[in-house]
Each structure stands twice: as structure tokens, then as C-alpha cells.
Design a protein around this nucleic acid. Sequence first.
DNA 1: CAGGACAAGTTCCCTAAAGGAACCTGAGTA
DNA 2: TACTCAGGTTCCTTTAGGGAACTTGTCCTG
Lengths: 172, 172
Amino acid sequence: MTRTPLVDVACSIARATDLFGDAWTALIMRDVLAGVTRFDDLARDLGISRKTLAAKLARLLDEDVLTRETYQQRPAREHYVATEKGKELYPVLLALMNWGDRWYAGEAGPPARVHHLDCRSDTVPVTTCGNCGEALTSDNTTQLPGPGGRIGPGTQVLGPLIASRAGARSDE
Amino acid sequence: MTRTPLVDVACSIARATDLFGDAWTALIMRDVLAGVTRFDDLARDLGISRKTLAAKLARLLDEDVLTRETYQQRPAREHYVATEKGKELYPVLLALMNWGDRWYAGEAGPPARVHHLDCRSDTVPVTTCGNCGEALTSDNTTQLPGPGGRIGPGTQVLGPLIASRAGARSDE
DNA sequence: CAGGACAAGTTCCCTAAAGGAACCTGAGTA
DNA sequence: TACTCAGGTTCCTTTAGGGAACTTGTCCTG
């Protein structure tokens, strides 16, 4: 497939997407965070080919999103556990799930509910501003170049966009 | 590649992932929501092959995430605009970007900042409980089967998981 | 009014990543 | 010693994605 390597693109979405942007990684992380952590269970639950699963897990270990931990000594078995970095993918999963629920839940309603243990109620995740707590939307926010900003594929948007929001057009 | 069709799996993450879980769709949506809406601009900005871009856009139109709108009459040109459904993907992008920033921003810092227009400050998105407003994490939430729940690949987790959080293991 | 520029795709060929399914290996345990 | 199970590998085939050139319909300019 010769995917364009997105890692070195100066855009955090691109970087995250490079890892997370395939059909399986999100589902693997969902399962791992939900407690399905063993190779065979993952393979069975996801219906993924064992080969692909092995590759994905290797990548996730490599990226330090998952670690392998021994969960029993006698026949020495290991399973996969989310690291801090892995756990922080949870908001991404929630957002994805929430969107899927809103737009694809059939008449039967969403297939799963998220229950917030602290307030003891089923919850709908809302992405809010860390400052004021208000919900963030594409309309009430703008992207501005940050300290690490630079021009390159996938970021050329920044320059022109800032310059003029309307007729953005990057010459090469 | 013969990807397993995830659409009919009873998991909203899977459904969302089926559309969103490829390297490009997230980046296309980022650009469209940021104001890069024309075919050529997208192709140039993303460094995506025109063929793939055409395919992705067709899919997004098909899914009603984007619409085509005429933006000038004289040489009759159209561009792509996010629908309501498309705009609601924004939280997913924010979560992805936030994660990328936290874990992949180099010494230079994140490449872009999100500015919240309402409170006039650069913001960090937080995924919170729609009820109590507290931040949601994988530790303070559980997934419970919803009204549309059913067993199948990618959802088999629900049964065992609910039954016992520890030794989950789905027999077939 | 011919020639070039643009925007927006489409077509062709090639490569590599995903799927399927069988095979492998090392440690219990009957 | 034979069997089972967890956790992977290996081999082969299919196909989405990359690159880049080609196409079509409209302007614009000399």
C-alpha cells in the first residue's frame, strides 16, 4: 500500500492518525481498555486475522501504548495492558463511539452505554474547553499555528488559513 | 485488502471506525472543517493521491458527512462542506489532536493551538460527563450493554465482561 | 479566436498490507 | 507419552493505496 508516512508531518492529528488510523487499532484499544486483553480473546472477539492482530499489537507495544504483563505464573501467560499513553486514548474512543451512536444507532438504540461510576449515571461524553468548560465545536474554535508549527504536507493549511480564511490557497 | 466489513457489527466504535478508520479520512475532515474545501487544495495540502482523495470524498458524500456546494458561478465550481453529521466529528478530531500533542509534540511544542473563540483563550479539550461535567477516563467508567446490544464479532466482549470483570473469556 | 490555464476528476500500472487458514512451539496435565 | 492450550508465524491471494499522466469543460488573454 505504500502509505505516505504521516509521522513526520507537523500535525498532531496526522501523527495520531498514523498509529490510530486503521480499521483495527481503535477496536483493539477499545477491547483492551474494556478488559479483553489476551491474544486469543482479542482475535476471537474482533474477528481479526491472528497475523494482523500480532502486527497491530507489536506496533502498539512499540509505541508504548500497550505493555505486556504476566497475569499468571504457572503456565506463564502474558496479556496486554494499556499504559498511561494508551489510557489517554480513551477520550478518542468515547468521541468515536458517541458519534457512531448518534448517527448509526438503529431503531434499537445504541449497542452500549457508558456508565460514569463517579456520578452513578449513564453518560454522554461532551468535549469541552479546559478553560471555561463550555462545549467545543468547529464553529466556536480556530486553529492557530503553535510553537512547533512548520510548513509541510498536511500543514500547509496553517499559513494560508491564517492569512485569509476565505480564499485560502497555498502556492508551492 | 479485503477488509472485514465492520458496518454491521453492533458496536458504534466499529461503525465509526469503518468510515473514519483509515489514514486519510480524519485528515480530510480536519482540513474541511478548517476551511480547506476544494479538491485541488485538499490534494495539495494532504499530499494524498488524487485517486484516493476522490474515493474518500465520494464515500464521505455517500455517508452524508460532506456535501458538495457551488461556491462560484462563473466557471461553475463546487467545493466540499461538512454537514451537521460531519461537524460532529470535530470532537473526535480534537481528542485525536490532543493526544498527538501530548505524546508526540517534539521539543518545539505542538504544531497548532486550538483557540476557543467564546472564552478567548487557547484551549485544551477535555472529554467530560454530560451529566456532572467531570472528566471521563477509562477508570471511572464502565461499558454496559445498551438497548441495541447484541452478540457478534466485536461485541462479544459485552457478555463476559459484564459477567465478570476479571477472568472474561468468551466460549464459543 | 487559438492557446494556455484551472479545477476537478479518471485511468493505468505497481506495490505492499490485510485476510484466511494452516502450521509451530513450549509449558502444563491426564 | 499424548493431548491441549495460549500465543504466535508462515504462506498465499486479494485489493486499497501511491504516482503520475491523461481528460473534460470553462474561462482568460494576446
